[in-house]
């Protein structure tokens, strides 16, 4: 149970709204702009758009201080939720490579795609439905595999 349920819900809404506003102001909602960043071959001709690096840089600098100086436990929740995995493995790097190909094909990653539902509801819906299907199928498959492994049917990865 959350320590401060009202604050928890308020911050959920406020953080979601600030995130969405940030995506719209920075124009990361535009797949063309994202592709223009990934198009490093356009650097010599002057057609490259480094904006995405500025978005990520600004976000990382601000978030760094929150992660660095956060209290020992969250203000409104009992504990921090964080992946405990360490080290590099095939799932991490292979998954990131697969994500990168999809990102480069479409110019879309999950945040901007969700935002675009409220901006240009149309083609983006196909992307979001496929994204949810891919993520959930992978999640179910992973849960199935680890259940099988715990029953001794297949070796765990």
């Amino acid at each position: 149970m959350n320590r401060r349920p009202v604050l928890f819900t308020a911050v959920t809404l406020i953080a979601g709204a600030i995130f969405g506003a940030g995506l719209a102001i920075s124009r990361m909602i535009d797949p063309q702009k994202v592709k223009d960043f990934l198009d490093f071959a356009a650097i010599p001709s002057g057609g490259w758009d480094p904006s995405l690096a500025f978005v990520m840089g600004g976000a990382v600098v601000v978030a760094f201080f929150f992660y660095r100086f956060a209290a020992p436990r969250p203000v409104a929740a009992p504990d921090f939720h964080l992946s405990l995995q360490t080290g590099l493995d095939r799932r991490l790097l292979g998954g990131a490579a697969i994500f990168g190909v999809g990102w480069g094909l479409s110019g879309l990653c999950p945040g901007p795609a969700i935002a675009d539902i409220a901006i240009v509801p149309g083609d983006v819906l196909v992307f979001v439905i496929a994204l949810a299907a891919g993520s959930w199928a992978t999640g179910f498959y992973g849960a199935f595999r680890s259940r099988q492994a715990s029953l001794g049917n297949v070796p765990a990865e």
Partner: peptide, 17 residues
């Protein structure tokens, strides 16, 4: 926009974990 996204991520961490 980046600063706003960082602020969102920071708040969600510090307050909601």
């Amino acid at each position: 926009g980046g600063v706003l996204i960082g602020l969102s991520a920071g708040l969600l961490w510090a307050v909601n974990g």
